[in-house]
Design a protein around this nucleic acid. Structure first.
Length: 347
DNA sequence: TAGGCCATCTGGTCCT
DNA sequence: AGGACCAGATGGCCTA
């Protein structure tokens, strides 16, 4: 279907004045979605339907290219475009456009409502439409699994299901909002790697995350009303998992798979928490590690002599790429801490 | 600059 | 006739 050329700006003002198309017709409920008529991009400007072009088109049907009379068309004869009919047609088109805008705004409002009940809602960083729908699908699916199979919402599979088919940034967002951090498992991993027992506790490894009091991610929050107590999610064993793989109990998903997560080292240096954030009791977040490390050289003296870990910029020995990356990804720019870490390591 | 996302216009189709 | 719904087309905005 070819899109008809749009009217010229001059047509628009004529159209508006002739139709009494007031600004209130164009303004959306929130007041800023719909541009004013004069600000329409050319292709969006209302067409002056029933214009001379249309009349010419009608005449062209009667006369062939060579000037001879074209054979009579079969079927119902086209009604003649009288001025009154043109006007009705134009008014109808304008009203239809307004309805369509309104309809789409309603659709978007519904999407916003849907976003607001997702496990990671953030006005600042809205999920795209498609990601909202995918996450909603996954959320329902995951919750169903919880109800039907008794799967724990703190399980590895639950988060996998939530992230299934989502883009990496959205997966990161979800993971971050679930406070899915490497705190416990990472330290455990370091234990394995470094052979340091008892590391990671409150008084343990210097790398252990400063707990509560540090800011939570700025990209969303998991409200208590969001059903499950995921707030206490400590992270599961991701060692042998990928976000694209589901537990055997999970049905196949047709959507595109999340690209393999890689360590991109996207860390942002967070500052002091807001009072609101500080009073929240949340699980230590990898961001906290960033905060910590920004002021603490690595490796710490207590680990002197231990083999230098490799892999992740922060905790290179860790094989927990998924949660690390998922949790850190929303923070940009990536090079800040990455370069910081390289300089730390080069020391 | 390419690609993703979005808002809007538009014509077709179906239904009331 | 008119409204709802849909999908195609298009340009703007933003980000990597």
């Amino acid at each position: 279907m070819m899109t008809k050329p749009y009217g010229k700006p001059g047509d628009v003002t004529e159209l508006v004045s002739s139709l009494g198309w007031m600004e209130e017709d164009l303004s959306s409920p929130d007041g800023d979605r719909t541009p004013e008529i004069g600000h329409y991009p050319l292709h969006r400007r209302p067409v002056e339907l029933g214009s001379d072009d249309m009349e010419e088109e009608e005449e062209e049907e009667e006369v062939g290219l060579d000037g001879e009379k074209a054979p009579k068309r079969r079927g119902p004869k086209k009604k003649k475009m009288t001025k009154a009919r043109q006007e009705r047609f134009r008014v109808r088109r304008v009203k239809a456009n307004a309805r369509e805008r309104s309809r789409m705004h309603g659709l978007n409002d519904a999407l916003d409502n849907l976003r607001s009940v997702m496990p990671c809602y953030s006005k600042a960083q809205k999920l795209s439409k498609i990601e909202t729908l995918r996450l909603a699908h996954n959320y329902i699916w995951a919750l169903s699994e919880v109800l039907e199979s008794g799967q724990s919402p703190e399980s590895h599979g639950f988060v996998e299901m939530l992230c299934k088919g989502l883009s990496q940034p959205t997966s990161n967002l979800v993971a971050g909002c679930l406070q899915l951090g490497p705190s416990s498992m990472l330290i455990n991993k370091l234990d394995e790697k470094c052979g340091v027992p008892g590391v990671g506790g409150p008084q343990g490894h210097p790398i252990s995350y400063p707990s509560p009091g540090l800011p939570s991610p700025p990209y969303g929050s998991l409200e208590a009303s969001h059903l499950l107590h995921l707030k206490g999610f400590k992270g599961a064993n991701y060692e042998n998992s990928s976000p694209n793989e589901c537990s055997s109990t999970t049905p196949p998903y047709d959507g595109p798979l999340t690209p393999p997560l890689s360590i991109s080292g996207n860390f942002a240096l967070k500052q002091e928490p807001s009072p609101h954030e500080a009073e929240r009791n949340f699980t230590p977040h990898p961001t906290h590690a960033t905060h910590y490390i920004s002021s603490h050289p690595y490796p710490p003296s207590s680990l002197a002599g231990l083999p230098a870990p490799q892999g992740h910029p922060l905790f290179p020995g860790s094989r927990f790429e998924l949660p690390l990356d998922m949790a850190f990804e929303p923070f940009t720019p990536s090079h800040i801490v990455t370069s910081q870490m390289s300089s730390i390591y080069s020391e």
